[in-house]
Simulated scan of single mutants.
Amino acid sequence: MNEAGDSPVTALRRGGGLAAWRQIADALAGEIRSGALARGAQLPAESALATRFGVNRHTVRRALGVLAEDGLVRTTQGKGSFVEQGPIPYPIGPRTRFSEIVTRTGREAWGDLIAAATVPADAGWAEALGIAPGAPILELHTVHRADGAPISTARTCLPLPRFSGFDAAYAASGSITRAYAGYGVADYTRLSTRIGARPADAEEAARLDIAPGRSLIVLSSVNVDGDGQRIQATRSLFAADRVELVVE
């Protein structure tokens, strides 16, 4: 057994032309696909894997990097590596609520506020919110998680002064919907959604615990309140292999 006590020592083939890191990646991928390593499970520490395979930690790290690029694991700084849980069905309809969607899958939903600022609306955000270019808006940068795993990162803009202080309400509640309740918005609906795709840059990849260049689904959306007033414009970036979009 290795030092973690959960896997036997695995002998690698030497001199066969297949690099050690590739053999390790293939072995772990096989265990993930067979269910021996369950979805959401934490992998043994790099030191334990190095002991198991009789290699140094650099070789293990390279193997884990390949598995991350293939969408089989995610590595979180300071926490370790985890088997990806599989895509969440994500309906896009009149009422699209991240917290409700994630909770229905049996996972815990939460949103982290990364940054917030009051900025003048550029032409694109002004058009989306139905306001004049240059008007002040509150810009939020967030990361949304399911059982701690980052699913999406977003840039959300709201008109001011109506939503002054919304950043504090969001940070405390971890939910756009719950934060709206403090502003008298009991319900809101989706006015429009545009769907695109592109590779993740380094900053986006770091927020989502994925390798740079991995595919992102880009959702640009506008929400309105019960009176039809535009209250939110958002550009969300989803790790493509963590959601399955369902257009309703």
Rank of each mutant, 00 (worst) to 15 (best):
A41N: 00
T51D: 12
G71S: 05
G71Q: 05
A149L: 01
A179F: 08
R57S: 12
T142I: 13
A27R: 09
D6R: 10
N223V: 06
A135L: 03
Q77H: 15
R194Q: 14
A45Y: 00
G196E: 01
G80H: 03
R74V: 11
A197E: 11
V83G: 03
F82M: 03
T51Q: 11
M1Q: 13
A126M: 06
V246P: 02
L18S: 03
A240E: 12
F98M: 02
G54S: 09
R104W: 07
D26C: 03
R52K: 14
E248D: 15
D241A: 07
F163Q: 00
L49P: 04
N56T: 13
R14Y: 05
S81T: 15
R74M: 14
R74E: 14
P159F: 03
A116F: 06
P89G: 06
A4V: 04
R145I: 05
S220D: 15
P150E: 12
R178K: 15
I92Q: 07
A233Y: 15
R22S: 13
T118I: 15
A135M: 03
S34T: 13
G182V: 04
L158E: 03
P91W: 10
R62E: 15
A239R: 09
R95S: 02
A41R: 04
S175T: 01
A68E: 15
R104Y: 01
R155P: 01
G30F: 01
P94Q: 04
L43N: 06
T177D: 13
L138I: 12
A239G: 13
I151P: 03
G111H: 00
E69G: 15
A179D: 06
A29S: 11
Y180K: 03
A63K: 03
A19T: 06
S164K: 01
S7A: 12
Y183N: 10
G130Y: 07
L216R: 12
A63V: 05
D70G: 10
T142F: 07
A115Q: 08
S175C: 09
A135V: 02
Y180H: 15
A117C: 00
D112E: 14
A239K: 08
V119I: 14
V222K: 12
Y183C: 09
L12A: 06
T156Q: 07
P89C: 07
D122W: 02
D26V: 06
L18Q: 01
G182Y: 03
E3Q: 12
D225A: 07
D112T: 09
L64Q: 02
G78M: 11
A38R: 14
V119D: 04
G35R: 05
T59L: 08
T59F: 08
A29V: 01
G148N: 09
A123H: 10
S215P: 06
A11G: 08
L12E: 09
D227R: 10
R39A: 15
A233T: 15
A135I: 03
E244I: 00
L237T: 02
V119G: 04
P44W: 12
R97Y: 09
I24E: 00
R74D: 10
P120L: 02
F82S: 01
L12S: 10
V60E: 06
T142D: 05
A181F: 11
Y180D: 05
A240K: 09
D70M: 08
A36C: 00
S152L: 14
R198E: 14
R57W: 08
Y170V: 00
D225Q: 04
A123F: 11
R235Y: 05
G17T: 09
E127L: 08
I217T: 13
T142Y: 08
P44G: 11
S175M: 04
A168F: 00
L216E: 05
L64A: 06
L18N: 01
E108R: 14
